[in-house]
Design a protein around this nucleic acid. Sequence first.
DNA 1: TTATACTTTACTATGTTTATCAACATAGTA
DNA 2: TACTATGTTGATAAACATAGTAAAGTATAA
Lengths: 140, 140
Amino acid sequence: MRISAKCDYACRALTALAKEWPNKKPIQIHMISQSQDIPMRYLVHILIQLKGLGLVTSTRGKAGGYALLRAPKKITLAEVMRKVCGPLLPRASSAAKSESVFATIWKELEGAMSKVLENITFDDILKKAKGIDGAINYHI
Amino acid sequence: MRISAKCDYACRALTALAKEWPNKKPIQIHMISQSQDIPMRYLVHILIQLKGLGLVTSTRGKAGGYALLRAPKKITLAEVMRKVCGPLLPRASSAAKSESVFATIWKELEGAMSKVLENITFDDILKKAKGIDGAINYHI
DNA sequence: TTATACTTTACTATGTTTATCAACATAGTA
DNA sequence: TACTATGTTGATAAACATAGTAAAGTATAA
């Protein structure tokens, strides 16, 4: 089991947008791509999805780009993960088998994950990032 | 993010074997396939992997088959998941990016999952399954 | 009108899941 | 020993999902 690249990218992209909150100026795709080291051509699709999910808004034309639709404090990792990565349960579980022991266990596991992710907002992530960047100072 | 069918199958197969513990007689692949509703040709490969991981043993020839190598009580879901499904972290995370905020968060998440899974042994699963089978009585 | 940046569609590459088949190993029997 | 039924092992390939690329289309500020 793995967190997909797409999910990781989506979270990192949202972090980049959260950094600018509540500025009015939108951020261009290539900026996000550079700062977060995400393949630009792929990021395009992810941002469109995030827009469809009601997490970000977009502006076209010159000085266009993307911006958060809500305050970072109001966006939890749980919401993003659920929307972008989908549920934890295996696809194959049929109706009959949904009564199986493991259906119960996987749901229990999903609950434990949610508990952790509900308590992390993108405001928290910004604070954590500042700590790491300050200590290591890796980026230019 | 999803629990792969393979992981789900592996757990169900181990449950089928756990039911027979500590009988001496090995269980054939087609028996496991039938009772757990797992595609037989695929199950073959999963069992070979489980054998390589030191979870089960196999006997060839007439009356051959598979059996657990340890008591169900001594096998946790955490061990199986870690071995079969691999780590939670996204593959793409490079060395530089491993210092990223999300690398930390994904590890935290993995820890929360482990805590749940460490506390579930295949003995527990057998008991749960009995409860469900007894109540619903779905299988022939 | 024009440059710019988002939007949409189509395509390629890679990896995972599942199915098929031939080769090999073992136990029982004569 | 040789034969045979039964079952494991391993290689290969089709079907599908994911990850990433490319380029033409569309909206908007200047």
